[in-house]
Amino acid sequence: MNDPKIPSRSTTGANRAEGLIDPVALMKIKSMELRAKAVVEGFWKGIHRSPYHGFSVEFTEYRQYAFGDDPRYLDWRVYARSDRFYIKKFEDETNLRCHLLLDHSRSMGYASGAYSKAQYAGTLAATLAYFLFTQGDAVGLATFDDQIREYLPPRNRASYLRRLLLTLETQPAGRATSLGPPLQRLAGMLTRRGMIVLISDLLTSIERLERDLGYLCAGGHDVVVFHVLDPAELSFDFTAPALFQDVETGRDLYVDPTVAQKNYRQLLEEHLARTRSVCQGLAIDYHLFATDRPFDLALLDFLQDRMHRRKRVKRIRGPGAGLGSGGAGRAV
């Protein structure tokens, strides 16, 4: 899990200095598909695994058996001819069903820079979708504000990806964020277990958040939360006093940032810590992203997290238990 401390702009700047893809540059690409492709490049083979054991129908290659491989996949015919153990590799058809839940509330439209949180979240969702598609997973999409606005059930077809990416390009036009009703409804809709990726700014009260995330976890889903915040929201480094207007409620508040910043950051940190704590309690992978954070780093964090999760699963299930037929680099 990420450090709960608020990432600063200097940190994000350092990330850019490492030669990673600058999100600002990336967001200039109009096509969501191209953006996703650019990010996913290099992550062709994921390290995550499906919680279900799949089966293969299409042969791809042989690989020499290594310790730990499932003996069920040994090709006995090859062994009979060559007396060597080879594992027969197939083009997998996985049962992983991933739902991307994208917050399209009005607060997601906030942008202190060139792009909004919603645009960043959309790109992030596209990246994940593309990545998962390339791995053959079925990806669905649901956008919501205080209710579900768009819903695409998980599919694994190339044309479906395009449709999904097009849906992601729509700008948020919702109202206030209210995770409760849409998540509750989704929990009812998703009868089969799968992975749920929630991308939101989570600007709601902690008590509700815990209850709302509980709906998803109760269905046995593997839930990942991407908490997306604007750098200005994280740092609140405004200078001039002004009437701050809540983008969702329209309420005005006179705030002198130089006075209010300290208190703001303190409250925000408390909020983040409690959010993290809630996620931890519900066994949810939690990732906090500032919108200036490069997507590849975000993806890396995600994958690393998934690997750690796999190890956790392995530890829970014991050695040799529950592993699929995929190789070392194949995990869902």
């Binding site: 700014d201 600007l203 208190n263």
Partner: peptide, 16 residues
Amino acid sequence: TRKRVTFSSLMFLRPT
């Protein structure tokens, strides 16, 4: 006071 700044949420702000 005539300058308005739209912000995502005022939940962490207190009037000054």
